[in-house]
Structures are given as C-alpha cells and as structure tokens.
Nucleic acid binder design. Structure first.
Length: 489
RNA sequence: CGAGGCGUAGCGCAGUUUGGUAGCGCACUGCGUUCGGGACGCAGGGGUCGGAGGUUCAAAUCCUCUCGCCUCGACCA
C-alpha cells in the first residue's frame, strides 16, 4: 500500500475509493457490488443513524421490522412501482444446494420454490400488505412506522457507499386520513433530513421537488435533499415521497372516517441510506484523506504521546489525566494512541487520513510548559494550549470545526452554482461542472433533450424558486419553475 | 451483450518478446537503535504464476480451451 491517496484533482473517483479503503471505512465484499462496512465506517453510520432515529421518535414515529423476502406478485400491484424496480431485483428461486460430483455444490433442482420470492428493493409492498390488516378506522391513523433495514438492488455499476447491491437505510412508511396530513408529514420529514444533513453532517443541501422524470416509482410527489460533492456533481442525499392513494389502491387499504364512510388511506414514504457516508467523504475529504465533522467522528480527539520508552508513556498518561477526565465528563469521544512501535509522524498521517477533527500532541516540551499541542484537521492550524484551559478550548474548537466545515462546504457550493438563462452558456458550464440555477418551462421534453445533450438532469425544483421574469433555459418560454440542473451520481 | 485491457505473495507490480533454480516495493514476524510530520539496520515467513489440457529434457514464458476481474459503452441513479 502506498502512503497517500491519489490527489482529488488527478482522479476524483480513485481519490474517493483510496480514502475509503485507507481510512478503513469499508472494503469490497466477495460478491460483485457488495461492500463490507468496517468498524470505523460503521461507527460513522451509527452516529448518523442515531441523529435521525432520535428525531423520528421525537416526532411520533416508531420503529418496526418487516421481512426481507417479498412475494413476487406484490411487486406487480402498483404499475409504476414495478416499472421502477423490476429490473434490479434479486429473486430467490430455490431453497437448497446439494453436493456436486466435482466436490462443489449445485442448486438442487428439486428445491424449486412454488412461488418465487424477491429480496426487497424497498418495502412499500410488504408494508402496505400489512397495513391492510391493521387499518380499519380513522382511529388507527396516522400510522407512523419506520424501519432500519438492508435492501438489495442489483445494480450493474456500483461504487462504495454511493451505489452498492445491498445497502443499509431507514425507510419510513406512514398512513394518514387526509391528503393534507400526508403532505405535511412528507414535508416534516424533509425538514428533518435537511436539519440533520446540515447541522450533524455539515453538508449544505437544497430542498425541493423532483421532476416527473426523476420521481420515485409510485409516488405522486418526490421531495429531495440534494448536495454538491467535491467534484461539483450532485448527489441525492435523501428523499421524502408523498404517495397519495397509489399504494392504498394497490393494496386495498381503506378506513372508515368519522362519517362512517369508506375512504382510501393517504401515504408517505421516505428514506436516507448509507449513501450519506459517501456524501460525507466527498463533501469534506481532502488530499490528506477524510475530514469528519465532530458530530459523527468516531474519535473527536486523538491524543498522541511523544515518547521514547514505556515509562515515558506512563508519565504522559498521568500528565493528561485531568484533561482526559474532563473530556470524559463532557462526553467528548477521544482516544490515546499509545502504540509504541509507530513513530509520531506515522500516527499524524494515519489520523489525518481517518479524519479525526482534533489531534493533541503531548511530549516533554508540553509537560515542561504545562501545555498541550493542538492541531485542527479542518484548517491545519496548530497551537499550544494551556493544560488547564484545554478541555474548554477543545469543546469550543469542536463546535467551531463543525460550523466551519459546514461553511466551507456552503461556500464551495455557492461558488459553483451559476445563474444561467442561455442554453449555449448552459452547455459550456455543465461541461466544467457545478449547479446551474435556471428556469424550466415544465415540459418533460425540454428536460429530456437537455439530458440527452449534456447528461445533466433536474436535481430539484426549488421550493423557494422565483419564476417572475424567468424564462426556460432551453426553450426560452416563460418558466414554470426555477430549478437546479447538474450532473449527478 | 459490444470494444479494449488485465490475471504472478495480503496490496502494487517486474519477469513472458528470445522456455532454463519465481523476483522487487509496501505490508507482515523477531531483535536492536530511533521517536515534536509517514525512522533505520540486521534476520525471517509467505507463491501449486487464475484453471484445464497440449508441445518440450525443461513452461509464469509457446499453443488450445476455459474461468474471473477492470475500464468504456448499453442498463441504473
């Protein structure tokens, strides 16, 4: 293994996989397209998960678990839904293997299943088949269920965290008595997504509606949070769907309202996935490796003793006890890297690769001066701090790093977002990347033509878009929406 | 499925043209010296050269077949 990572500027895709493997976030699984999330990466995912989970619970949602296997027939109940997922489903056709003549194993043809089952690519269908049993009256509504699970989508092209055959996510599935309530729910979740992305992951996101072409298969409206990655491409970081009565119709889920009349249930579904870990890497990482926002960093502080012998280590450990005790009391996650065989320089580089927000060096010089030597991962700034103030300073610094990383990402996005209303200028700009904010006449044909010409798609129809005096960048007709166009992952 | 490329130690590669004891760097193990930005020395361990068949005194190297992977397209987002 070579020392550093491929520079971002040289080959962004290689930089990305280098960072992931060298920071020990993840590794390739034995089956093509699969990924092993290693402990360090999983710890980041755990933090992300906790941030969402607590907010879901605060807003009245409960967790449950639905089966991995779905009857094949379920997928055909909603026409758009099948269209969207049928081509990437893993199908279980047999239940047994048997020994083969060559010493290996083969599928036992006698174990062929009567009814084949699919491995869930998403759970709307199983969940709605159950909701049919559980919902009878308006008193059973709203039903606000979330599940944390794995799903399988048999993609041809995969990339660690961004698109893998199997991934982890949360999927919320709610049922409501009225359209308004369901739409409100859809937007409430969108808000949570934005809040967590920005305040926890330090990733600025745009929110808005998807165009029909980009909409979730089976949804009436798909809302999204959309982020700009370090190569100026867009990544859909989360989606919240208003499903209308589509799934209620498909699974015949009706309730009796207060007037004793039967009505179809209104639905939402929403999800974020381990893809967010990929976003975190691409938004914040640099040529030294990962940069993790303090809120999701497995270690917020790493302490590196500068030592010659095992006795030196003991002395330093004693010296930092007041400091580490204070960190512990304020709930700051830290680690003392006391490995004797590695040189300090090696450790500096390793922890920088792993994105630890603050490195604290402690050596003889510090003990003499009653200081600690402190280095920030986000800015590279280094300074000695007095041992007595250290815990407070560190706490403040972590907050600064968190907001600084958000601001850096925001500035990057702003700098690479362009208001354009001329199609030639559009094409030139798209070729060199970035987000383009422009008018759209609302015609799927103009969207399709732009995609064909440039590979750019509408990332979102801006919720706060202004269409006054705005014309469609393609047709020149009056714009129906203000949208963001970009090339996406 | 189309076009190109690659399979040799955990990883990255050389060796194949012209057949002759399977190598290098990193990683790993042990000992010693180092330690405030990727330390160094010495000594080690690890391979049926993707697989099968053939040619030959002799095959990583030549021939035939086969399997797998990667990149670009197609597909997907």
């Amino acid at each position: 293994m070579s020392k550093g990572v491929t520079p971002k500027s040289e080959d962004y895709a290689r930089w990305y996989t280098d960072v992931i493997t060298k920071a020990e976030m993840a590794d390739y699984g034995p089956v093509k397209g699969t990924m092993v999330i290693r402990p360090y990466g999983f710890s980041v995912w755990d933090s992300i998960k906790d941030a969402f989970d607590s907010r879901f619970k605060e807003t009245g949602h409960v967790n449950a678990y639905f089966p991995l296997f779905i009857p094949k027939s379920f997928l055909s109940k909603e026409a758009d839904h099948v269209e969207g997922f049928a081509k990437e489903c893993a199908v279980v056709t047999h239940s047994r293997l048997k020994s083969a003549a060559d010493g290996g194993v083969v599928v036992d043809p006698e174990s062929k299943l009567e009814e084949e089952v699919i491995v869930r690519p998403t759970s709307e269908t199983v969940i709605w088949s159950m909701y049919k049993k559980w919902i009878n009256s308006y008193r059973d509504l709203p039903l606000l269920i979330n599940q944390w699970a794995n799903v399988v989508r048999w993609e041809m092209r995969t990339r660690l965290f961004l698109r893998t055959s199997e991934f982890l996510w949360q999927e919320g599935h709610t049922a409501h008595a009225s359209e308004k309530e369901a739409v409100d729910e859809t937007l409430k979740i969108l808000d949570i997504y934005k809040e967590v992305a920005e305040s926890v992951l330090a990733i600025p996101v745009l929110t808005g509606l998807k165009s029909e072409a980009e909409r979730f298969a089976g949804a009436v409206d798909t809302y999204c949070i959309e982020a700009m990655m370090g190569d100026k491409r867009a990544l859909q970081a989360g989606t919240s769907h208003y499903l209308g009565q589509n799934f209620a119709k498909a699974f015949d889920v009706k309730f009796q309202n207060e007037n004793n009349r039967e009505e179809l249930v209104y639905a939402t579904s929403w999800g974020v996935s381990t893809r967010l870990v990929g976003a975190l890497i691409m938004v914040h990482g640099d040529d030294k490796g990962l940069r993790l926002p303090p809120q999701v960093a497995p270690n917020q502080v790493v302490i590196i003793p500068i030592i010659k012998t095992e006795e030196d280590l003991k002395t330093i450990e004693d010296y930092v006890i007041p400091f580490t005790t204070a960190l512990k009391n304020s709930g700051i996650r830290f680690q003392i890297d006391s490995r004797l065989k590695m040189s300090p320089g090696f450790k500096f580089n390793e922890w920088e690769m792993k994105g630890v927000p603050i490195r604290v060096e402690v050596g003889p010089r510090d003990m003499e001066n009653k200081t600690l030597f402190c280095a920030r991962r986000d800015t590279g700034e280094k300074q000695p701090i007095a041992l007595d103030d250290a815990p407070k300073k560190i706490e403040t610094m972590l907050e600064e790093i968190q907001s600084n990383m958000f601001n850096q990402a925001l500035q990057f996005r702003e700098k690479n977002t362009f208001n354009i209303n001329d199609y030639d200028a559009f094409k030139t700009q798209i070729a060199s990347g970035g987000f383009i904010r422009c008018g759209w006449d609302g015609d799927p044909a103009s969207e399709a033509q732009i995609k064909n010409d440039t590979k750019a798609t509408i990332r979102c129809i801006l919720a706060d878009g202004k269409t006054k005096n705005l014309t469609c960048v393609y047709s020149g007709k009056p714009a129906k929406h203000e949208v963001i166009y970009a090339k996406a992952y």
